[in-house]
Design a protein around this nucleic acid. Sequence first.
DNA 1: ATAATTTAGATGTATGTACATGTATTAGTA
DNA 2: TACTAATACATGTACATACATCTAAATTAT
Lengths: 152, 152
Amino acid sequence: MKLEQAIQSTKFKNETHKAGLNILYTAWWLKTSFSQALKEYGLTHEQYNVLRILKGKNPEQMCVRDIACRMIEKSSNVPRIVDRLEIKKLVKRSVSSFDKRETMIQLTAAGLLLLEVTTKKADELFDNQLCVTDEEAKQLNELLEKLRQKEA
Amino acid sequence: MKLEQAIQSTKFKNETHKAGLNILYTAWWLKTSFSQALKEYGLTHEQYNVLRILKGKNPEQMCVRDIACRMIEKSSNVPRIVDRLEIKKLVKRSVSSFDKRETMIQLTAAGLLLLEVTTKKADELFDNQLCVTDEEAKQLNELLEKLRQKEA
DNA sequence: ATAATTTAGATGTATGTACATGTATTAGTA
DNA sequence: TACTAATACATGTACATACATCTAAATTAT
């Protein structure tokens, strides 16, 4: 669907302005599809993201700060997301013996298992839903990184 | 900043997968910059979006449903956003005489004024922060719309 | 004309974001 | 060593999203 249809608007200040809205809309669409796919497993996409980050170091633990700086949305409140994962017994919290201020998070066996199943689903979604060739994806990545040039 | 730095990750399944994450990250970055710029006016970017939509029809009123279908994030809860705009006297609610189920929303003079000021800021942000040429923006728009081809 | 269905929007709840503040612990300094 | 500053995380609040449910009004079917 063209952006014009999606947000019922035809007047854009210029192509760059339209691109900004297009990115916001595409991100919303992608998040929604993703959340939909994870729903039957009782996970939100933020919770999935935290599990996926933990997997990267598994079976090592990670502290909250290390998880936070790997999140896509930097302002995510990781302690709160971990709360919910802990209730579902997908992760375990413990105080770091190295630095008692740090809370170490570790995947449980259940968490690892659920992650493996959902990762398959998530990868399928990306492969099936995102209709660009490898070459186009590369181009898209370059354009997005150029666009963000003035990132603080 | 490269995506790899931003989310401290170098392993992507493929370029398309990376593009998906890149879109999500870019959208977060854009939203954050935007919210920052609106902050001194006491507006969130969702509230701004609703005001902007209302301006499109001003001085005509719009019903909640018509606003909702123009929102970038389709699952936005428009009545609640309107609640907050109403408290700030930026919009006015009234029952439609045409169909009493409908709530009609109209910009107040204060809303219109605030919108004009913030629109300038918002446009500046888009122009200054998004570092792509017109040609690149066009390409980006084409790629995003191709990517979303399988949109439901 | 009356009953059943659909629609519009308000509202409740769980989750998440954005940001401020509180508390414990560690690091740095006089 | 004692005092101060910084850090890690938990937690409170306002706003937003995602989705379910409720109420009133309009539409459709019988």
